[in-house]
Amino acid sequence: MHIVVCIKQVPETRDVAVDEETGVLLRDGVKSIMNPFDLYALEAALRLKEERGGSVSVISMGPPQAEAVIREAYMMGADRGYLLTDRAFAGADTLATAFTLAQGIDKIGEADLIVCGLQTTDGDTAQVGPGIAEMLRIPHESNVIAITGVTDSGLRLERDSGDSLDTVDVAFPCLITVTKAIGEPRLLSFRRKLETADYPVVYWSLGDLGENEDSLYGLKGSPTQVERIFSPPTQSDQEMWRGSGSELAQRLLSKLSDLRFVGGMRHD
C-alpha cells in the first residue's frame, strides 16, 4: 500500500498582531514548525503502513526552507519526500494550492490513500484536502477521527459530522483529512535522524509537473485575492455596570438576548 501525506510548514505561534498604522503583521523571530494536524496525518499513515506494509511518501509546497518539515517526517518514519517549490507557485490560494499538490501527487503516482491534516493553523480553511480529492476525482472523507478497518480495497472509518458520528466504508484510491482524535503522533527518533540524514528530498518546480501552464499556479491560478489585513476590533467598548442585583441581572439578560445567547434560536 502506498500512502501520500500532505504536510505544510507554518509559523509556530498564532499570536500575531497587526501594526495599527501600517497594517503590517508583526511576527519577529517566529519559528517555523510542521502544521500540528499534519503530525497526526503522518501518524495515521505510519500506523497503516505498520499494519499493512507498503510505503509512506510526504509532499509539501513551499519555499526551500520547507525541506525542514520533510526531514522531520523522515525522522518519524516517512520513506520519501517531495518539495514543490517555484516562484510560479507564489500567492496561491486554496484552489491553486490544491491544484499544485494534486499535480505533485499525480507525478509521484500510484497512491492508494492520501492523508491530510484537517486544516492548517495559519489558514484554518480545511479546504485544500477536499480540493486535492476533487482535482484527482477521487472520493474523500473529512473530519476522520478513527480508522477502524483496512482491507486491500478500502478503509472503514469514523467521521465526525458535527451532529452525528458516522461509520463510513470508502474505497481506494481516496483521500482523508484527520483530526487530533486519530491518535497521538510519535516522537522524532534520534536513530531515524541518523539513518535518514542522507535521504534525498526530491525538489520539483513548474517544469517538472505534468501541467506546465503557469496561469494555473500561484497568484494567476487563484480566484481569491486578499485585499487587506487588519486587527480585529479591540475591547475598547468595555462596559462596567453598577446597580442592585436584580437590575444587573435584567440588564445582562437583555444583553444576552441581543447577542442571541438567549431565546429566538429555534425556528422549527
Binding site: 480545511a126 479546504q127 480540493g131 473529512s142 473530519n143 465526525d160 459530522s161
Partner: peptide
C-alpha cells in the same frame, strides 16, 4: 461552516474552478 459545509464547499469550488472563502 459546519463539518458538512466545510467538506462540500471546497469540493464544489474546485469542480467549478472558482474561489471559496472559509468561515
Amino acid at each position: 461552516a459546519t463539518p458538512t459545509g466545510r467538506t462540500l464547499a471546497p469540493r464544489l469550488a474546485t469542480r467549478l474552478r472558482t474561489g471559496l472563502t472559509a468561515d
